[in-house]
């Protein structure tokens, strides 16, 4: 059974009619030729799909990023990478299944891949904690990154999380520190690092594995400082204002590219990554490979200073060192 989002209803409706028409022409042999009707319907379906998917609102993209059929980290580990060997645990407390990682090969080169992992059904979601990692997940990620750094393996991270887990245990084991340490240590890893937001880029939980030489993002993924619902609840006092918040926060791939907060938007097939895993995987592999080759080509010192500068430059402000009082500004400045 195909899963349709609300805004995909017109497509679902047309698809249903088309299916009916086809079934009808097969089962009933009245000598009527329905081929023209089928062709017309197909054309209309195609046009509708095109018009809906090429004009997606930020909120619609958020829904696509959260689509239950969307490819997750382990899907790409099977389709983009080869020879994945999972490594478990943070050597301190637990193996956080919301964060996976291990050795893999990308276009023939050995890499370390780390990513947040959602579950496909209820049972797996309980195991994966809906893709929201605990401190152990971030500490496992750091352990694997340090391992990679020590043995000169490039690091690739795949980001798909609504955020780090807000729970009592997470606080007791200091999730804030786990994320903070990752941010600091990722800034000074000597090996090349590339991150890709493949679904949800949920705030600090995403950034906790996202401080890298290059940050790529899939076309319908989003990356935000706070969930649209959370922002709506605080600034509009109403979670139902989430679509508005999604627009105001500028969280879509295109917006982030325009704001120079990501390096490249990786295109998805029409209708979203889940409609064609093979095509999506090919685009993901090519983008990862290309960016990795580019940062690998840089001398280590250069790569580190560029990484520092990349984040150093992010931010917008005005400076007015001579006039502490706004009223005193002369009219010609």
């Amino acid at each position: 059974m195909k899963h349709y989002l609300d805004f995909e209803k017109p497509i679902a409706e047309l698809q249903r009619k088309l299916d009916e028409l086809r079934a009808h022409s097969e089962s009933v042999s009245l000598g009527l030729n329905l081929e023209t009707e089928v062709a017309l319907m197909e054309k209309k379906l195609d046009e509708t799909r095109r018009s809906i998917y090429s004009n997606l609102s930020p909120w619609q993209r958020v829904q696509l990023a959260r689509h239950p059929k969307r490819p997750y980290t382990l899907d790409y580990l099977g389709s983009v990478f080869t020879d994945f060997q999972e490594l478990h645990g943070d050597r301190l407390f637990a193996d956080d299944r919301a964060m996976v990682g291990g050795f893999a090969r990308l276009d023939g080169r050995n890499v370390m891949v780390i990513g947040t992992q959602k579950g496909r059904d209820t049972k797996e979601n309980i195991l994966r904690n809906f893709g929201s990692a605990h401190p152990e997940g971030y500490r496992k990620a750091l352990r694997l990154m340090r391992l990679a750094d020590r043995f000169q393996l490039p690091i690739i991270t795949l980001i798909d999380t609504a955020g780090a887990y807000p729970g009592v245990g997470a606080e007791e084991r200091h999730i804030a520190e786990a994320i903070a340490v990752n941010l600091r240590e990722m800034a000074v890893m000597r090996v090349p690092m590339v991150a890709m937001v493949i679904g949800e880029g949920g705030s600090g939980g995403a950034l906790g594995i996202g401080v890298t030489d290059r940050v790529l993002i899939l076309e319908n993924a989003y990356y935000s400082v706070i969930s649209p619902e959370g922002c709506a609840a605080i600034l509009w006092k109403d979670r139902a204002a989430a679509p508005k918040a999604a627009g105001a926060l500028k969280i879509t791939a295109r917006d982030l590219l325009e704001l120079k907060l990501v390096d490249e938007v990786v295109p998805e097939p029409l209708g979203g990554a889940h409609t064609d895993l093979e095509a999506t995987s090919q685009a993901v592999r090519q983008a990862l490979s290309r960016h990795l080759a580019e940062v690998e080509a840089l001398p280590e010192e250069d790569r580190l200073s560029r990484r520092y500068e990349k984040y150093r430059r992010m931010g917008h402000f005005v400076e007015d060192p001579v006039t502490p009082h706004a009223d005193a500004v002369s009219p010609d400045v």
Binding site: R184, S203, V225, I251, Y311, G315
Partner: peptide, 14 residues
């Protein structure tokens, strides 16, 4: 300030 705010976490930590 949306994602610019989030990125200050990376900037200060670096």
């Amino acid at each position: 300030e949306g994602m610019f705010s989030l990125m200050q976490m990376a900037k200060t930590s670096a």
